[in-house]
Amino acid sequence: MSDLFHQQSPIVQIKLTEPKANQPLIREIPFQGFLNLRGRPNNPDFMTAVKKVLGCSLPIEANTVVVSGDYKIYWLGPDEWLVITPTEQQRKVQSELISALGVIFSSVVDNSSGVTIINITGDNAANLIARDCPLDLHSTVFKAGQCAQTRLAKSGAMIAPLLDGSGFELIIRRSFADYLLLWMQDALIEFEA
């Protein structure tokens, strides 16, 4: 779709640099489809309808992630999930969910421009985040398949270990993205030497 060309990332004013010395690598994965999905997990109709569209059951264990083909589904709360799709599939998934759910008590809301993904990889990925995040990021405690919404600096983030163990995926709000990236770039200085 040609209109994709007009998109601008929330961190358009940030220049990401190549890591020096022990600095972790910070990269944005821009322009994904983000759907905020709400419904009652104890309603089998809701769970079935969603499964039909996404191809997997919604994660009902708190703070876990389920991957289904191109889709990733994050637990946000006991009746709330974040569905991440490739950009071009967001509309399709959204309308399929809405029509599959019909009158079932639920909500499917596009938030694709509301958040973005920042991947932090490398030896000091956890140390960079831990500069101002109260979550225990240790690999024995926080493992691939888990996710957590938490405080990051003076904002917040959804944090999940990357499946390959190379670092972390952060999902951050658009309006705070510029601040958080400035914070991260400043934090990188510690690992410069």
Binding site: G39, S106, S107, V109, D110, N111, S113, G114, R174, S175
Partner: peptide, 10 residues
Amino acid sequence: FLTSVTDHWA
């Protein structure tokens, strides 16, 4: 159900 979309819309 409530969902914040403050950041999604310009």
